[in-house]
Design a protein around this nucleic acid. Structure first.
Length: 214
DNA sequence: ACCCAGGTGGCCC
DNA sequence: GGGCCACATGGG
């Protein structure tokens, strides 16, 4: 595998070091069902929002003992989440998005939990996620890749910028870039996880980056 | 007083 | 299928 894409990956890895240092929970092995739920909740909270604010919302939910799919699915109304989620912005829609996802998992997987759901076939799980309100391609792939540990490459604005700058493609649509990366990399969850983290990380100040343990 | 942050859904054409 | 726009908070 000697594609430009793979060389780019190796360069980023050499330049930035292992993403595990600054994305500990998202890249770690042996995730619990709870870890997976928190990652999925975080993926929604961070939509068009700084990770710092998404993290504050996660902490609010944790203090309120609402940081789990079961607890959120039990709520009668999504509006209950508003005060905890407010700090992450879009507080009218994010509670609905979280509620929708948690309800979906509850209805379809019952007591088996998110960990079991994560074993679902990748293509089917991606279709499921995309059908939910508030989950578009980037969030779906983020959940598949980091919460489910499935080899589904995540494309974001940083990826697009990088591809444009390196002149790796002219069609910058989501699906085209996703296919481009998946076609030019080994089908490997760890590489996809590292790559996406490195793309984001490489464009930020190292000292200001890093995820706390929620 | 701007601009941005790990997007998405709803319109419009 | 692509091009806009609203959504909302906190930090620079």
């Amino acid at each position: 595998m000697e594609s430009k894409i793979y060389k780019l990956y190796l360069n980023l890895l050499q330049k930035c070091g292992s993403p595990k240092e600054y994305w500990p929970q998202w890249c770690k092995k042996g995730k619990t069902s709870s870890d997976r739920e928190i990652i999925a909740i975080g993926a929604i909270l961070t939509q068009r929002t700084s990770w710092r604010n998404a993290e504050l919302a996660l902490e609010n939910l944790k203090k309120a003992e609402l940081l789990s799919f079961g607890k959120i699915a039990e709520l009668e109304r999504s509006e209950t989440l508003v005060p905890y989620v407010r700090v992450a912005g879009f507080y009218q829609s994010k509670p609905k998005k979280l509620f929708e996802l948690c309800k979906f998992i509850e209805v379809f997987e019952g007591v088996k939990g998110f960990g079991e759901y994560a074993k679902k076939n990748l293509e089917k799980a991606r279709e499921d996620l995309l059908s939910l309100y508030g989950i578009g391609p980037e969030t779906a792939d983020t959940i598949l890749l980091y919460a489910f540990d499935k080899p589904s490459f995540v494309v974001d604005e940083y990826t697009k910028r990088l591809v444009k700058k390196e002149e790796l493609a002219t069609d910058l649509s989501y699906d085209n870039l996703k296919n481009l990366f998946e076609k030019n990399l080994p089908v490997n969850t760890e590489i996809y996880q590292n790559f996406h983290a490195l793309v984001i990380f490489s464009q930020k100040e190292k000292s200001r980056w890093g995820m706390k343990v929620v």
